[in-house]
């Protein structure tokens, strides 16, 4: 285990340097890139704190969703036991089902949308806090 500062604290230090000192010292054509770099440090700072919880929640959400789809589609496969699979492969399964033009029943359809929105809201707490606030009309 590394000694403090931890990753989030170090990223905060780098972001502060970029925001406070570097941006005012670079030529104008680099300022936008420095601003973006600082923002990326802020994103990563949040990611180190939130990504583990978010990914666990997405894994559970996708497993439940794929189980629901499996039941509704009345397939016999054992691919619904997704607890130990990673998010990426669960996502790939959901994509495969969504790419299949066979109709989804209304309950599944609604569940998919709600699950995807829950995941996106969680992703946005890292990438852009406040973006998914109720006042933000799409």
């Amino acid at each position: 285990m590394q000694y403090r500062p931890d990753a989030a604290e170090l990223l905060d230090a780098v972001a502060s340097l970029l925001e406070a000192d570097v941006i005012t010292s670079v030529p104008p054509h680099l300022q936008h890139q420095v601003r973006v770099a600082a923002n990326l440090c802020r994103i990563l700072e949040r990611e180190t704190q939130l990504a583990g919880t978010n990914d666990d929640a997405e894994r559970v959400r996708l497993s439940l969703l794929l189980a629901l789809i499996g039941n509704r589609d009345d397939t016999n496969g054992d691919d619904t036991n997704g607890d130990d699979r990673d998010v990426r492969s669960l996502r790939a399964d959901l994509v495969a089902r969504l790419d299949d033009p066979a109709p989804l029943d209304a309950v599944v359809e609604r569940s998919v949308r709600e699950a995807l929105l829950d995941t996106l809201r969680a992703d946005l707490t890292i990438a852009k806090p406040g973006y998914a606030a109720p006042t933000g009309a799409p």
Partner: peptide, 25 residues
């Protein structure tokens, strides 16, 4: 290669969220 282009990957969720919210709107 550019930090700005790299950062675009962290903006994908914004558009995906808006698209799904629009679908229900």
């Amino acid at each position: 290669s550019s930090v700005v282009m790299a950062a675009s990957g962290r903006r994908v969720a914004e558009m995906a969220y808006d698209a799904l919210m629009l679908i229900d709107a």
